[in-house]
Design a protein around this nucleic acid. Structure first.
Lengths: 103, 103
DNA sequence: GACTTATTTTGTTTTTTACCTAAATAACAA
DNA sequence: TTGTTATTTAGGTAAAAAACAAAATAAGTC
């Protein structure tokens, strides 16, 4: 769940998400919308996939990506909770905050 | 507004935000909640300030931080818009996507 | 002015992220 | 099996982010 915030931090990934909310698209179609090399976009797709924000389906030689709507909505409510009550730190977050105190 | 997403990307900053939603606190009080050096937290405060997510008020030698509620809520609605319709890229985002295409 | 407390700024190092080109893989057609 | 198209993985570099210790600043008090 912490991966979601990281995924949203980059403008290209937010744009990809917005495009996929509107309609599912192939990796190539998505890549054509940006002046970036395809491997760069492929990297962004991986970040979104790791956050479970997009789903991948192969059709022949092309990969179709679609927005994972339920996780998008979970992210939104998660954010609302954060702002309203504060969150219990999960494993990753806790680790980040538990380093031994120096001097 | 793109700074907001960047600010939310780090777990420590989300935690700070959650703490401040609950109650305003001094830099020192906040810093004590984490096992990180004070300069490190000071850096995080700067990121949150740049995103306009927190407000700073000096009282004597101590600095009081409070959540900037209206911007928190703007961020939330902004995120909802992104998920529902997609956002017009602002200056910074546009620059990131306008590099000349290679070979 | 000298001292204390609270906090930041500076300078440096380490780690992570973003990007590229070139090479590899996957699926299919001839 | 050779070739073509779509896309990824590998390998490398450059830039950004995160962290620390040490020094500087700000606002008091004695």
């Amino acid at each position: 769940m912490s991966d979601v915030y990281k995924a949203l931090a980059h403008p290209v990934r937010r744009k990809v998400l917005a495009m996929l909310r509107e309609q599912a698209r192939s990796a190539g179609e998505l890549a054509d919308a940006f002046d970036l090399a395809k491997p760069t976009l492929s990297g962004h797709f991986n970040v979104l996939k790791a956050a479970n924000l997009i789903l991948e389906e192969r059709r022949g030689t092309t990969l179709i990506y679609r927005a994972n709507v339920s996780v998008l909505e979970d992210a939104l409510t998660g954010l609302m909770d954060l702002f309203k009550i504060g969150d219990a730190p999960d494993g990753a977050d806790a680790a980040l905050m538990s380093k031994a105190k120096r001097s």
